[in-house]
């Protein structure tokens, strides 16, 4: 899935957090990639919402996990309320805290229902890679915001965490946006 996204992506900001921060650099190296790891537990899509509101001409894609979402469920309500059309949240649903060893999450939580109930109009669950590949061009161009649930599994060992300077990540992204 990440390879498909990297292949289609052009000038969108891509914000990653937790497991995605380890996997996304394997397929992408772009000035508008932003590693949100350790910026605030559960807040990647809140940051993405602010960025999307600030830059309405620019698509903002957030790759986050279901564990992170559960740490800030209220963010769904705020996303539904302010609803910038240029925001795309891809929820990597693996039902576990993968980075910390795979501890299980609540098995019955329905993330599609939660997002719809929070007031987000364009909520979808995409079940497989083939469908994701088919739908991706639409998701990258159609006005949103979109909240997409992607059930995922990962059998490969995770790469080690790269500890890069937080302030430099911000400067790099602002430079990519033409603000530095």
């Amino acid at each position: 899935m990440l390879r498909l996204l990297a292949a289609r992506r052009t000038d969108e900001v891509v914000i990653t957090t937790m497991t995605a921060t380890l996997q996304w650099p394997l397929v992408s190296s772009h000035p508008l990639d932003f590693d949100f790891l350790a910026f605030g537990m559960g807040h990647a899509s809140d940051f993405g919402l602010g960025l999307a509101l600030a830059r309405p001409e620019r698509k903002v894609i957030v790759l986050k996990g279901d564990g992170g979402l559960l740490m800030s469920l209220g963010s769904l309500v705020t996303m539904g309320r302010y609803a910038p059309p240029n925001l795309l949240v891809l929820l990597l649903e693996n039902r576990s805290y993968e980075m910390t060893g795979g501890q299980p999450l609540a098995p019955k939580a329905d993330f599609v229902a939660l997002a719809r109930g929070a007031g987000i109009d364009k909520v979808e669950q995409i079940e497989d890679v083939t469908t994701f590949e088919e739908e991706l061009p639409r998701l990258l161009t159609e006005p949103g915001p979109h909240f997409i649930v992607l059930p995922v599994t990962n059998s490969e060992p995770l790469p080690p965490v790269a500890h890069t300077d937080h302030a430099e990540r911000v400067v790099s992204l602002r430079r990519g946006l033409g603000l530095e």
Binding site: F39, G50, G74, L177
Partner: peptide, 21 residues
């Protein structure tokens, strides 16, 4: 903007600032 909790709000504000606001 009125988020649902303050931690969410600080992250939202950080995104606004990084985006030039």
């Amino acid at each position: 903007y009125s988020p649902t909790r303050e931690g969410e709000g600080i992250a939202l504000a950080a995104g606004l600032w990084v985006g030039g606001r």
